[in-house]
Amino acid sequence: DVQVEMLEKARELFQLCDKDEKGFITKLDMQRLQSELPLTLEQLETVFDSLEQNNNGYLTPVEFSMGLGKLIGIDL
């Protein structure tokens, strides 16, 4: 149940980043968050690079959820 709850939360957070509702997040989307989050451009790039699995230039909801799950120690 915790997993379902976290997936739901991950999906909500993903939508905060995916402003255009493309279904994926680009590095540019990530950089745009700088105006809303207390992180530097460099930190946002670090986040993107940490979450990205296959270096294709965008983050999928799955990669996003996995990153969140890994961080809090739950296998999503």
């Binding site: 957070l13 992180l39 990153g67 961080l71």
Partner: peptide
């Protein structure tokens, strides 16, 4: 030491990122 910083803090940056998003979601409208 920039090299040390990159490796050691990426998890902290991730935590910071997700926490910020969460507080944005649940915080002010």
């Amino acid at each position: 030491d920039p090299n040390m910083k990159a490796g050691a803090t990426s998890e902290g940056v991730l935590a910071n990122f997700f926490n910020s998003l969460l507080s944005k979601k649940t915080g002010s409208p």
